[in-house]
Design a protein around this nucleic acid. Structure first.
Lengths: 116, 116
DNA sequence: CCGCATCCAGGTGGATACTG
DNA sequence: CAGTATCCACCTGGATGCGG
């Protein structure tokens, strides 16, 4: 891994995952496969239409997800992870594992300082 | 990996890495070991004292780095990665690899759309 | 040498209303 | 059903100056 600012690419990966709803959107698409806009909206409590559209566009621009429009009334738009997008899965998984362990780690620290 | 909002811990890991200078700080400490405040400041072009202090504090609060103050004049403060903090290294490494590949992927997409 | 306080610009995300 | 447009509150991070 190169640490020089111009050669370090950690930020590039980070930038794609960062966004209030991006991880959860990706996890839904990874787990459930192709989903309609309304499916995602229903599955993600609290998200607004604006933000869902916004985050989906950004992921689409990076070629992480695919958007398919069916020209019909009422409209139907399906989203799915691209083959390329799947390459992010190990990273998401590693972060989930680490995060889960981190919760435990913090609890321990808490207890240690309590019992002083 | 659990996808339920309350059980998904991707955000927890992400939150620790997110911050304009956190990845670069961590990479410096991982690569070079213990560093003084002024060492880090010099190694990271563009960072201000305020932000360096700020980001170091946040990492310290999560037990990722350790801060040691030598009570002397002029002051001397050393920062280093904790044992626990090292558990983030695989994730940073994976993100760097992915990011490096992503640059290539984007170039390909560029060329494809150019030659149409 | 290291850190804090203040002030401020810009970006991110939420609420709401409207369109094909 | 899916998306756009507008307005606004908040947060992050940059500039600068002071202090032990």
């Amino acid at each position: 891994m190169n640490i020089e600012p111009d050669l370090c690419r950690v930020e590039d990966a980070l930038g794609i995952l960062v966004g209030k709803w991006k991880p959860i959107i990706l996890l839904h698409l990874l787990k459930n496969g192709t989903q309609r806009f309304s499916d995602l909206k229903r599955s993600i409590p609290g998200i607004t239409q604006k933000m869902l559209t916004n985050q989906l566009r950004e992921l689409e621009n990076e070629d992480i997800i695919q958007r398919v429009v069916y020209p019909q009334v009422p409209p139907k738009v399906e989203y799915s992870i691209t083959e390329y997008g799947r390459s992010l899965e190990p990273i998401l998984h590693a972060m989930h594992e680490w995060g889960t362990n981190h919760i435990q780690h913090k609890k321990q620290k808490m207890n240690e300082s309590m019992s002083k």
